[in-house]
């Protein structure tokens, strides 16, 4: 039999091992990709155009498409998501049928594999609405995809605003709208901002629903009605055509840019949420 101390030691060891395992793999992946790719990331790689013939291998069009996609998806999903969260927390009667339906829908939406969104976007936005392969069709699809995250996280941020604020505000005769706009939303803003930054990560990270709806034209989109290729889709395309060492290098270089981008977004989320925790209430 193991003594109490020995058991403690074994368990401690296991816990440490698991932690080290996780950290190790994260660092390994990041290191592996960056070390293979960083040598090919230079100013020209970031600012050059891309051509299929291989004359130009830059990722500038993909960066622009990604920015378009992020901005447009958020512009569509953020107002709808935040307003839904406000409705659910401040207006709807807790436990009403409508609330249950909305909750069920957002939870189901969150559980659907993203390729299904792509399929839906392809048939509905691209086909039925006739938007064709375009940034707009992609952004609409991604907007639906990130809605659950925005709704849930914003809801939690709004619920975390102390009841005492609402009481005090209503106690002063302030209207519900005034209370929400002037008191609750500012207090919940760090949490809502976290939701939006998380969604940006999601938008950048998706590939399947994006190439099914926004297509993969690797040039700078002239407008939101043009097709565009985001960074992740670009990486996906590159990895399907890995014939030469050069192809590999370009894939790793693109992956490096993506990873740095995602790490930066995570950092921003951390900064915001640490401000959120310190937020004065």
């Amino acid at each position: 039999m193991l003594s109490r101390n020995q058991k403690d030691l074994v368990l401690n060891g296991l816990i440490w091992l698991s932690a080290i395992f996780t950290v190790f793999f994260l660092l390994w992946i990041v290191f592996y990709i960056v070390s293979n790719g960083i040598a090919y990331v230079d100013w020209a790689f970031i600012t050059d155009n891309y051509s299929r013939t291989g004359d130009e291998v830059g990722i500038w069009p993909m960066i622009v498409s990604t920015i378009y996609m992020v901005a447009l998806s958020l512009a569509i999903a953020a107002p709808i998501g935040v307003m839904t969260a406000i409705y659910l927390t401040e207006y709807a009667k807790a436990g009403s049928a409508l609330v249950k339906v909305i909750r069920f829908c957002t939870e189901s939406l969150a559980g659907i594999p993203s390729i299904i969104y792509g399929l839906f976007g392809l048939t509905f936005f691209v086909g039925v609405l006739g938007l064709g392969f375009s940034i707009l069709a992609g952004a609409l699809t991604l907007a639906i995809l990130i809605l659950p995250v925005i709704i849930r996280t914003s809801e939690e941020a709004i619920i975390a605003v102390p009841l005492a604020y609402r009481e005090a505000s209503y106690g002063l005769g302030a209207s519900r709208l005034y209370t929400i706009v002037r008191l609750i939303l500012p207090a919940a803003m760090p949490g809502i901002a976290t939701a939006l930054v998380l969604s940006i990560g999601r938008i950048i990270g998706e590939s399947a629903p994006v190439f099914l709806t926004a297509g993969m034209v690797a040039s700078i989109p002239g407008s939101i009605f043009d097709s565009g290729r985001t960074l992740t889709v670009h990486l996906y395309m590159l990895t399907t055509e890995l014939y030469t060492q050069h192809d590999w290098n370009m894939a790793f270089a693109t992956a490096t840019v993506l990873i740095v981008l995602v790490l930066m977004i995570n950092l921003i989320t951390k900064l915001i949420s640490s401000r959120f925790n310190k937020a004065s209430y």
Binding site: A164, E167, A168, G171, L172, P186, S280, Y281
Partner: peptide
């Protein structure tokens, strides 16, 4: 109700200033 509350102010148990 809103008018009533402007005429009957309330002070709560725990100080609850706004942020």
């Amino acid at each position: 109700v809103r008018k009533l509350r402007t005429r009957c102010g309330m002070v709560f148990q725990k100080p609850n200033p706004f942020p």
